[in-house]
Amino acid sequence: MASPKLSVIIPVHNESENIAPLCARLLPVLNRITSLWEVIFVDDGSRDDTLARIRTVNHDEPRIGAVSLSRNFGKEIAIAAGLDHARGDAVVIMDADLQHPPEMIETFVERWKEGNLMVYGQRTDRSDETRVKRGFAHLFYRLFARFGEIPLPEGAGDFRLIDQRGVEVLRSLGEKARFSKGLYAWIGFKSTGVPFVVEERLHGTTKWSFRKLFRFAFDGMAAFSTVPLRIWTYLGFLISFMSIATAVYFLVRTLLFGTDLPGFPSLIVSVMFFSGIQLMSLGIIGEYVGRIFAEVKRRPLYVVQERLGGAAEVSSSLVQDDPRLRRA
Rank of each mutant, 00 (worst) to 15 (best):
G204I: 00
K207L: 14
F237Y: 08
M272S: 10
I231N: 06
W208D: 13
V269E: 12
L279K: 09
S209I: 10
F196T: 02
R215V: 08
S191C: 05
D260N: 12
F264G: 10
S240C: 06
A222S: 09
F273C: 07
R211F: 09
A185W: 00
S270D: 09
F214Y: 11
E200D: 15
E287C: 09
V252Y: 12
E199N: 15
T246G: 10
M272F: 13
E200P: 09
G188I: 01
G236L: 06
S266W: 05
L261N: 06
G188M: 02
G286P: 04
I244C: 07
W232R: 02
V252S: 11
K190L: 05
D260R: 15
S275N: 08
G283I: 05
F250V: 12
F237K: 09
T206F: 11
Q278K: 09
G290A: 08
R211H: 13
P228W: 00
S281Q: 10
G182K: 01
R253H: 11
I285Q: 13
S270V: 08
W186N: 11
V252G: 09
G188K: 03
M221Q: 07
D219T: 15
L261H: 07
G193T: 15
G290I: 01
Y288F: 15
G188Y: 01
F189R: 00
P265I: 04
F237S: 06
F274E: 07
R215I: 10
M221V: 13
M280T: 10
G204Y: 01
V198R: 08
R230N: 10
G276H: 05
G204E: 05
A185K: 00
F216N: 07
G290K: 02
L238M: 03
Y184I: 02
R201D: 07
K181V: 05
A222T: 04
M242T: 06
S266I: 08
F224W: 08
S270M: 12
T246K: 10
A185M: 02
D219L: 03
V197G: 07
M280P: 05
S281K: 12
R201L: 11
S191I: 03
S240F: 05
G182N: 01
Y234N: 07
